[in-house]
């Protein structure tokens, strides 16, 4: 059964704030952070007063040395952590005010890729990718078709009955990307996606991730590899000790 949806609902969403200073929202912004801080221990900050905005379909690198707060920033965006201070609006939803039940619904609209792939060795490639559809209760036949189409885009369709450990590192990361993309997410977050890969595979994976943004998905890639930033000439946000120290937008780039 398909439910009727009004046209262009996104622009109608207001942030879920109750009494708090209402964050201004823009219909074309996928991610908005206002004076966000995250502290795990009193007095020490993993992120400090970060205000950033990423548009729909925008591609951006998050750079900075280890411990700069890149991973924390991504974790805030998919609701794995809550900000200690500030407001975050992701796809029109105010993350800091989301109830426990709303976080999973938001995550279904966000794909996440990690350096260590996070694939389940017991499951086949196809089953790993299908996890993202199992969660939605997608009928099996439909799920298999979607998984096949996604694997095919990534050149992995012939590997679908293999187990992850029999695949190369680059192939495993492509499986992880397939899992992140199979639901056609509006945002793709990648935390050092090429950190475990050699130079050739790094470019292969990065080309794939960059092409995702061309299809309208907002893509954030955390990396400490500055050569990638130079190579792709995209927006790059530099974090140091939890603060934004540079937000470089190439001339003629998006946003």
């Amino acid at each position: 059964m398909k439910r009727f949806r009004p046209l262009s609902p996104r622009s109608w969403f207001r942030p879920d704030s109750a009494g708090a200073p209402t964050a201004p929202t823009r219909a074309d912004a996928a991610i908005q952070m206002y004076h966000c801080s995250k502290s795990y221990l009193a007095g020490s900050f993993a992120l400090r007063d970060v205000s950033l905005e990423f548009g729909r379909g925008e591609f951006a690198f998050l750079t900075g040395p280890s411990g700069a707060g890149k991973t924390t920033l991504l974790e805030l965006l998919f609701g794995a952590e809550h900000p200690s201070e500030g407001q975050i609006v992701v796809l029109g939803r105010n993350i800091s005010r989301l109830g426990a039940a709303a976080v999973p619904r938001l995550r279904r609209r966000i794909g996440v890729v990690f350096q260590d792939f996070k694939l389940l060795p017991r499951l086949t490639v196809e089953e790993n990718v299908a996890l993202a559809l199992d969660v939605l209760g997608t009928p099996r036949r439909e799920a298999r078709a979607k998984v096949f189409a996604t694997l095919k885009q990534l050149g992995l369709q012939h590997r679908r009955y293999h187990h992850p450990l029999s695949l190369s590192g680059g192939e495993q990361q492509r499986v992880a990307i397939a899992r992140a993309l199979v639901n056609e997410p509006e945002i793709l977050l990648a935390d050092e996606p090429t950190g475990n890969l050699d130079a050739d595979l790094t470019l292969e994976i990065m080309d794939l991730v960059v092409s995702t943004a061309l299809r309208g998905t907002t893509v954030l890639v955390a990396t400490h590899d500055l050569s990638l930033v130079d190579r792709y000439g995209k927006r790059s946000v530099r974090l140091e000790a939890g603060r934004v120290t540079e937000d470089h937008r190439p001339a003629g780039g998006v946003a």
């Binding site: 998919f78 426990a100 039940a101 999973p104 619904r105 938001l106 995550r107 279904r108 609209r109 966000i110 996440v112 996070k118 389940l120 996890l131 993202a132 199992d134 969660v135 939605l136 899992r179 639901n183």
Partner: peptide, 16 residues
């Protein structure tokens, strides 16, 4: 736990 982490990551509810 690995499987559960991944399921939560791709948007599984706690009930799921």
């Amino acid at each position: 736990r690995d499987e559960l982490d991944i399921l939560r990551l791709v948007g599984a509810s706690r009930a799921f």
